[in-house]
Design a binder for these strands. Structure first.
Length: 341
DNA sequence: AATGAGGAACTGA
DNA sequence: TCAGTTCCTCATT
């Protein structure tokens, strides 16, 4: 029942900007990605079958794999208005997120209970999707050291975002076609403008940018206090939490390599194919795709020439400092945090 | 060939 | 001064 197709086909979603904050084209991109390879959580021991990290797949992945029955059950129940911080560990329906729907009960058409339940379920799914998207944008901001609002980007930020998007969707390199643009220019471009600069990738780039713009719009709305996220009074809305995190992490403090690695490790749904825990308790992790991790680090630090040779040298600098070491039984591409969390 | 270890010089904040 | 980055040689897998 809770499929992305339903999300997208719901006409209410298509009013830009909808309460989810996402516009038609961005939702269309989200839907399209549903057809791409889903992220699996299984270890990739032989290093084969590495798909792209698929930032926006995780939420759909979960929706498909989870039993969605709880959505109806919780929506039927009650007064809770919070959106929970995570979907994955949600085993018990009682603890699952519920979103307050301002229009419910006030409709002049007096929808049936069934319709109300369905509508609420839909909104829940939408909000979960939005939450995941915001979280993924937050991660991208951390990794690229850019602000979440495309309007604030300079030319360098635009190039980073393009590189990132190319990497994410396995697009051909199009950065050159946009080399003269800053964020404002980019945001003012229509899909046709995109098509003129990059016929192959215009649709994806435009839609992906649309997601970022919508997310920035939401952030603006949240921080303005205009709608304090629809009746959430006890806890912060997930989106707000995320943005406050994003703000602190984008505050210009140079990130350390060990922090960067830890961030990747904390996002297994996005980066589990290039780096993953072997033993989280002991802080032992394995770099599954050394070139990929090095590329991400290079992106983050603005070092296009970064490779695993250099990255591993930096990791080895941590041996003396007691931050990272090789595990007792040394294995290729396996390291261990000396002080696991 | 890829990875690992570590020295040494260098860079940018 | 710090936290890497770059380049290097040599060893191991």
């Amino acid at each position: 029942m809770a499929s992305p197709v339903r999300i997208q086909s719901d006409s209410a979603v298509l009013q830009p900007p909808h309460s989810t904050g996402f516009t038609e084209s961005s939702l269309a991109l989200l839907k399209r990605e549903d057809g791409l390879e889903m992220v699996d959580h299984k270890p990739c021991l032989d290093g084969s079958d590495r798909g792209h990290p698929g930032l926006y797949l995780s939420c759909f992945d979960m929706l498909f794999t989870e039993d969605a029955a709880w959505l109806v059950r919780v929506s039927d129940s009650s007064t809770s208005t919070d959106i929970g911080p995570r979907l994955e560990p949600c085993q018990e329906p009682e603890q699952c997120p519920v979103i307050d729907s301002p229009g419910l009960g006030a409709s002049p058409l007096s929808p049936t209970l069934e319709e109300q339940v369905e509508e609420r379920s839909l909104e829940q799914v939408q909000s979960l999707v939005v939450g995941e998207v915001l979280k993924d944008i937050e991660t991208a901001c951390k990794l690229l050291n850019i602000t979440p609002d495309p309007m604030e980007w300079n030319c360098g930020n635009v190039q980073k975002w393009l590189l990132w998007t190319e990497h994410l969707y396995r697009l051909p390199q199009v950065g050159k076609a946009f080399h003269d643009l800053d964020g404002k220019d980019l945001c003012s471009m229509s899909e046709e403008d995109f098509r003129q600069r990059s016929p192959q990738c215009s649709e994806t780039l435009h839609a992906h940018l649309d997601i970022w713009k919508s997310a920035a719009w939401m952030k603006e709305r949240c921080s303005g206090g205009e709608t304090r996220m629809r009746g959430t009074s006890q806890k912060q809305h997930k989106g707000e939490e995320l943005w406050s995190e994003a703000d602190s992490s984008c505050s210009g403090q140079p990130i350390h390599l060990w922090q960067f690695l830890r961030e990747l490790l904390l996002k297994p749904h996005s980066y589990g194919r290039c780096i993953r825990w072997l033993n989280k308790e002991k802080g032992i992790f394995k770099i599954e795709d050394s070139a990929h991790v090095a590329r991400l680090w290079g992106l983050r630090k603005n070092r296009p020439a970064m490779n695993y040779d250099k990255l591993s040298r930096s990791i080895r600098q941590y041996y003396k400092k007691g931050i990272i070491r090789k595990p007792d039984v040394s294995q290729r591409l396996v390291y261990q945090f000396v002080h696991p969390v």
